[in-house]
Design a protein around this nucleic acid. Sequence first.
DNA 1: TGCTGATATGCAGGCAGATCGATGCTGCTG
DNA 2: CAGCAGCATCGATCTGCCTGCATATCAGCA
Lengths: 125, 125
Amino acid sequence: MECVGTALAEMTMPQISPLAGEPIERADAERLAGVLKALADPARLRLLSLIQSAPEGEACVCDLTAPLGLSQPTVSHHLRILTEAGLLEREKRGVWAYYRLVPSAIATIADLLTPPRKRATKKAR
Amino acid sequence: MECVGTALAEMTMPQISPLAGEPIERADAERLAGVLKALADPARLRLLSLIQSAPEGEACVCDLTAPLGLSQPTVSHHLRILTEAGLLEREKRGVWAYYRLVPSAIATIADLLTPPRKRATKKAR
DNA sequence: TGCTGATATGCAGGCAGATCGATGCTGCTG
DNA sequence: CAGCAGCATCGATCTGCCTGCATATCAGCA
């Protein structure tokens, strides 16, 4: 559960580039797979997209159930998974719970997948 | 099945950037989720990593079963999924089946995830 | 042609996850 | 304080997927 939440942060560190040079360790593979698994769902991708394109870059549950066509518990469930994966952050204001993207989260994932060809200095940092 | 195989190709086109500007369509979300689902597995991530770091950038099934600790049918199954997702290509030479990464495949996925903050010209397409 | 070795496929058990209805919790509001 | 509205959690169902065993397929070789 919370292990997934920290997964992104740990991989952000100068650990290893999963698809870069050397074969990845089992543990690293499982961490990355955990985050990717949170992304690998149509409903959750649309949630991220909806939240990102919302007025203030944030949205509450009640704004998301209708466009998704899913029940409120289900939407809440998906938001929970995305939050635990470190992709969303939750802020409760009054009765509403506002969700917004964690700025660097998705970019980090993208970086973890690309490294090979972009930059040759992979030990420079 | 094959719809997943073509998913990457379709999204490579100047279609939409899933997490860029406007909310994504249901169909696009499902295509991207399909490819991500192929990636979101520890065994398959390690397979990609192993193949990528192999001598000639290619490897046959018999080279992969041991490091993964999985049975040959299981490894073959994962390779099949990765191939159908457009991430691997298969070449049969004699009795052996050699797999190698599809060069731009993973980079494409990474690009589909990043767009938002990198370039400000999101309506330029 | 018959045998051996490398892969692929079929089948089945078992577990993880997606979904929903019902319910509990917590701030507003009258 | 009572009622209500927005969310989270629980329990249950149903689907999909990972894995291995058994088996089929195919290429090279004696």
